[in-house]
């Protein structure tokens, strides 16, 4: 994260040295877009925070564990699709799940849908792409994640 901030700061400085006016114009353009997306972003984060409270590690292990069989893949896909977790929370959580008996291929589905599919962030995606494209991208990504997980399961089990 920090290297991006440093990179941006250096770039902005160089841009400023070359052309003050142009740089301001660019920053203003960016700031305007940020302000326009901010309210939607905040309300999405509020919704995510509330949903997350109701999903505990125990619930996850129950739905994703070996006892759930093939359904574990779909559960993993659906939980990953609804949840929005930053990597520094998602990976330690995935580590805990593996230790409590969740198959790695199920984790692959969970990690992939977690990042690629965002039901809760559709309000943001819709603003940029329109509802139809947003839904289709999410649906295809969901299918793609399941495919990756299933191939992984086959490789882990038969190789």
């Amino acid at each position: 994260m920090y290297y991006i901030i440093i990179f941006t700061a250096i770039l902005t400085l160089i841009s400023f040295i070359f052309d003050k006016k142009k740089t301001w114009k660019g920053i203003k353009k960016g700031a305007k877009q940020f302000i326009n997306i901010l309210p939607t972003l905040l309300s999405v984060i509020i919704l995510i925070s509330i949903v997350l409270y109701f999903v505990s590690d125990n619930v996850l292990t129950e739905y994703l564990g070996a006892g759930a069989g093939i359904a574990a893949y779909f559960s993993a896909g659906i939980i990953g699709a609804v949840a929005v977790l930053p990597g520094f929370i998602a990976y330690p959580l995935a580590g805990i799940l593996v230790k409590s008996g969740v198959a790695l291929s199920v984790i692959a589905v969970f990690i992939t849908t977690l990042k690629m599919v965002g039901i809760l962030t559709i309000p943001i995606e819709k603003k940029y792409f329109g509802l139809k494209v947003a839904l289709m991208r999410n649906l295809l990504s969901f299918a793609g994640a399941l495919l990756v997980g299933i191939i992984m399961a086959l490789i882990f089990n038969y190789l």
Partner: peptide
């Protein structure tokens, strides 16, 4: 929950939008 997400967002997004603005010009 909320505070952790907000921190991540507040750091990542303004930077991204400045880059986008500079790229644009």
């Amino acid at each position: 929950n909320f505070w952790e997400f907000l921190k991540e967002m507040i750091l990542a997004l303004p930077v991204m939008f400045i880059l986008i603005g500079l790229f644009d010009v």
